[in-house]
Structures are given as C-alpha cells and as structure tokens.
Nucleic acid binder design. Sequence first.
DNA 1: ACGTGCGGGACATCCCGTTCGT
DNA 2: ACGAACGGGATGTCCCGCACGT
Lengths: 194, 194, 194, 194
Amino acid sequence: MTKAGASTETRAKLIDAAILQLAASDGAAVNFDAIASRVGVTRGAAYHHFGSVHGLLEEVYKEAIRRHAGLVIESSSEGSGKYRLLSLVTASADLYGSGTPFYSVLLRFHVEAGVSRPRLAPIARCVQRRQREYMSELVELGQRDGSIRDDVPAAAVGSAVNAALQGFLVQQLESPVRQRSAATEFADLLDALL
Amino acid sequence: MTKAGASTETRAKLIDAAILQLAASDGAAVNFDAIASRVGVTRGAAYHHFGSVHGLLEEVYKEAIRRHAGLVIESSSEGSGKYRLLSLVTASADLYGSGTPFYSVLLRFHVEAGVSRPRLAPIARCVQRRQREYMSELVELGQRDGSIRDDVPAAAVGSAVNAALQGFLVQQLESPVRQRSAATEFADLLDALL
Amino acid sequence: MTKAGASTETRAKLIDAAILQLAASDGAAVNFDAIASRVGVTRGAAYHHFGSVHGLLEEVYKEAIRRHAGLVIESSSEGSGKYRLLSLVTASADLYGSGTPFYSVLLRFHVEAGVSRPRLAPIARCVQRRQREYMSELVELGQRDGSIRDDVPAAAVGSAVNAALQGFLVQQLESPVRQRSAATEFADLLDALL
Amino acid sequence: MTKAGASTETRAKLIDAAILQLAASDGAAVNFDAIASRVGVTRGAAYHHFGSVHGLLEEVYKEAIRRHAGLVIESSSEGSGKYRLLSLVTASADLYGSGTPFYSVLLRFHVEAGVSRPRLAPIARCVQRRQREYMSELVELGQRDGSIRDDVPAAAVGSAVNAALQGFLVQQLESPVRQRSAATEFADLLDALL
DNA sequence: ACGTGCGGGACATCCCGTTCGT
DNA sequence: ACGAACGGGATGTCCCGCACGT
C-alpha cells in the first residue's frame, strides 16, 4: 500500500471508530484516546487528521449525511406525489427507529447541531433546507398529478411535514414500537388531510 | 436568617446562576466552579446540594418546566377549540423564539434529553406526554364545538401538531424572524386543513 | 448509668477507638468519622468532647504516656544502678518493638511531636525531660554504688543513653528481630563502656 | 529553550518550591496548588511530573539526601579516626540545628519516614544503613590508628553513636542553643569513653 | 450530650490541545 | 504521518469544622 493510501485509510478508520464509539457511549462525551485506540493509533494521529475533537465530529456528521442521503431519495422514487411523500415519511421513521448505531449518531448530531454544537450548525442548516425543499417538490408533484389537494401552499405543507417528522424523531424517548406506530398514524393522518 | 432558610436560598440561587451560565455559554459545557462563584460559594456547596453536574442540570430542567407550564396553559385558554390550538402553537413559537436565556436553555434540554442526557430522559418523556395529551384535548374540544373537522382521530392530530411544533423548534437554526414566519405559516396551514 | 458517667465513657471509648484506628492505618491520616463510628456515635460527639482532630490526638498522646509511664519505672526498680539502667534500655526496646498497636501509636506521636504536630510538642518536651532526668538519676545511683565509673558526668551519660535509645526506636525500619538484637548489642556496649 | 530542557527545569523548580513550602508551613500538610503556583504552573503540571503529593515528597526527600550527603563526608575527612568521628557528630548537629529550611525538611522526612510515610521508608532505611556503616568505618579506623580503644566492637559503637545522634535530632524540641550544647556534651562524653 | 446539614478546601483522575521529535 | 511528553482545566470524592437543633 502506498503512503498516501495508508493515510486516507487511517482517516476513514478513525471516522468509523468515532461512529461506533459515539453509538456505544449512551449520550456521554466521546474520548479521543478511545477512538484512536480502536484503530490502533494514538491521539497524535487523530489530531493530525482532524485538528480537534470537534473537527472529527464534523467529519463524522458530514460522512453520516452523505451515507444517509441516498437511502431516503431511493425510498421515495416511485408512485404518485402523495405516495412518494408518505413513503418518505415512513421510510425515514423506519431508518431512524431501526436502532442502528449509525442512525442514533446521525439523529444526535441533527438535534445537537442546533443547541450545543455551533460548528455543526451550518451543515445542519443546509441539510434541513434541502430536505424541506425535497418535500415541497413532492407536494407540488402531487398537486400536479392530482394526488394532493391544491388549495394549500406546497411550501408550507412540505415544511410542516418535515417539521413533524423531525419532531417525532426527537421524541424518540418512547419504545421503538410506539414510535413506529406513531409514524404510521401520522402517515394515515396525512393521507386523510391531503 | 435561619440556617434552613439560607440553605434553600443557596440552592435556588445556584439554579438561577446555572440558567444564566447555560444561556451565556453558547452550547458550551457548564462550569461548576463558575456557577458557584456567581452565587458566592465554592464547588463544595454545589456538590452538597446537587451531587454532580448532572444533578444540578436535572434540577434546572425541572425548574424550567415548572416555570414554563403556566405560561402555555394561560396562552390558550380562550375561544373555540381550534382557536385555542392555534393560539398554543403561535404562543409556543413566540416564547421559544423570543431569545430569552430561559427559553434557549429549556429548548436545549428538551432536545438533548432525547439524545445525550439520559438522566433527563424520564422527565422529558413525561413532559412530552402531557403536552401531547393537552393538544389532543384541545382538538377533541374543537371537534365537539364544530370548529375542527371530526373525520380524523383527535389523538393523531394532537400528536402530529405537537411533533411539528417540536420540529420547528429544533430547526431553530434559521433567524428568529424566519422562524416566526414559519410558525405563522404553519398555523395558517392548520387552519385550512382542519 | 448516670448522664455524666455515659459522657465520660463515650470520651474514653473515643480515645480507645482512635488508638486502634491509628495503629490500623499504617501511617495514613486518621478519619474522625471512622473513629466515631467504631464507638457508635457520630462526628458531632467527637467534636463535643475534643473540639478538633488535633484535640483528640492530643488526648490520645497524653493517655498513651500515662499508660506507658508505669511500665518503664517498674521494669527498672531492682538491682544496682547500672543494672537498672540496662534493664530500662532493654525493657523499652522490648515494649516499643513488641508490635503492639499501642506502642506503634505512642512512638509515632513521640517523633511527630517534634516535626509535624506543634500541639504535641510541649507534652513531648516534658516527657523527654522527665525521661532524661530519670536516666541521669539511675547513672548517679550507679556511680554511688560503684557499678558505674564516676569519671564522667551523670547528666551527660543519661542524656546520651536516652538519645541513643530514642534513635534506635526511630530507626524502627529494620525487622523487629534486627531491632531487638541492636538493643542487646547496645546494652552490652554500655556495660563495657560504663 | 528546548522542550526537554523546559520540562527538566519545571521539575526542578517544583522540587525547590516544595522544600520552601514545607519549611514555611510549620509541620502542616503541603498544598500542591500552592507549590505549583510558586513556580507559575498549575497542579496539572505537578501531577504530570510526580503523579501524586507523595510522589513529589519522595523526590524532595531523595534530592535533600543527595545535597546533604556531600557535606557530612567533607566535614569529617581530616585527622585521626576519633577526631573524624567527633567532627561528624558536631557537624551534623550544627547542620540540623542551623534552622535552615532545607534541614528542617530533611529532618522531618527522616523521622516521618519511619512512622507515617511508608513510601519514604525504603529510602530512609538505605540512608540509615549507609550512615551506620560510615560511622563504623571511622571507629574501625580509630581503633587501627590507636585513637579509639579496641576492646569494643566497632560496629556496635558506630551503631550506637549514630542512634544517639539521631535521637538528639528528634528531640529538637529544645532551643537550638540547648541542642548545640547537648551535642558538645555528647562529643565530650564520647571523647572520654572511647 | 449528641445528631445533622451546610459549606470549604485539598486531592487525584481524566481528557483536551500543543509542541516537539522521528 | 505519527508518537510522546507537557501542561491546563474540569470533575468528583473525601474530610474537616461550624452552627443549628433536640
């Protein structure tokens, strides 16, 4: 393996280790040394690549978003506008409620970005906007193909659905099964109202 | 002053100081020493009263919820069921978006409770449930007085409105003015759909 | 039991507990709470009787000296002046080297009085003086009954023997058996020189 | 300044500060924070170098012994065996009784090593043995050059003289002048007996 | 005479970021 | 690119002494 390759690999392995470590530690702060140990290097290497703990977490967040982006698009690519919107809702709820380490970390950063991690805020803002716009597009599509009533502004609906979805996720305090049923209930409600 | 009185006062002052400190430090961790200094005591006193940083934060959260509870009830006490529901939505958005230190702290704990502060989770769960139930009651009320359509389950609507409200708050990344307009937009949408 | 009697007994029991605790903790600082617990009372009682940790230790020291005083006098009451002096030396070495908790505590205070417990210093000074004088008396006695050469000042000899004895004790770093043999060796040397 | 150099200097300065602090505080416990402040660093640095308070004191003790060793040897390098022995006695008494902060600290550790600082015990044991052996050598020398009577075992005499010297030091409760005269008296006595 | 709550201060541990060296 | 030592700052524990109550 080339020198540059080894470096890139170390970097990737550190990000992976951070995700696992974050998921393992139930909400507690992460330990730079522990993360590095998982990979078999020392903190020095981690500092070389990311500059600081926050720097690493930032990369983790970006990476998580990249990995997640594809999934949601794919899950809502078929059918009428309304169907695609409802599919997006249930698919998101399923993913976040799956208990996968990856998603608990992603969610954690999503909400912490707004309240306690200023460095993540710009990224989160961007993601939120994209998600809102994507939902609004689906609504608009539904209004054009007649599957969604057209007497309400598409942007407002997209925004509201996105917010509600986010709200359900934040309330991830109930058992997963309770959360799943809440999502289904929500989808049904949307189906009726729109 | 009697000794017991002084103790209660110290305790209360520590909680107040913690709120100020939390609001001041933009998302950063709280400093036990700094909090104690504000009150004019040492960390020893704080540890005596709260046992740990988490213990103090727990009390701060409880206190914040107590203070907040009255306001929201009051803001939605007049008019038809639908009107009361919409009032609750806009009032909440106004309070949380007001920029008051108190509310930035409350919001912060609301969302962190789910993802990074296990000790606050049970409290948050309870609060969430009460809020959901209160909203559902308002919907039910609206359905009885004819201000809200009765072909949708009240519980599902209450739950969804609550989630959306929470979601908007979490997305408090945009400017306050943007957030305010989003809330109004949401209220209008609800008005149209219900 | 009368009220006053109970009080006196608590006091005495606290002193006993302190001696045991001191002997148990190998050189470490003693814990007021632990001492009080042994007796079945709380720190409050101890503070009532002794005012402070140092106050208690002072009483412990005094009590230890009282208990010890009788033994050494008794052990050197028979025979010629020289014999009594040598008996005193070996008896002291035996007692201190016996490993009894009581004696390890007494020795500890003897030496600490000079270097790290100012409050014990006056007491220790007094004890030292009495011991020196007693030894000098024995030497004088020996010079009068012909068992000790009389071309050396009795006071200087008493002082030196006392110092040497103290020195051996402080050097209680070697094994007890080594210490015992050192004492015998010293007694033999004195026998030869005097 | 290179990094390694700065580190060594910090370490040395901490030891010096500890000696001053120990000498200043009359027997009281040492304050890690105060020591670090004197040097201009925080407790973190001190813990890095010494691990604990006891660790620092251990180094202080070792350093003190190193500094002291040279002086005593030098003070007893000339003349007959007997003269060198007596010189050593008076020189030691002079040094320890000089009131120098350095010597009050050294003495304090010498005696506390036996009774209340287990970590210093091994070091003290070693020093004691070396001192005893050195004195015995001087006695042997004196016996060979005729300045000391040869009908007593050199080892026993060395051991006894060493113990007596140590004993006088421990009894450093009297005024310095009284202690000085006691040392002279002792030297005279040795002169007469040997 | 004794129990109990309050508050202060020292200590040791942990973890971060920096700065060298390799 | 990575390792290793250094030093800073926060946390939590322990134990002391005070002041009140009973």
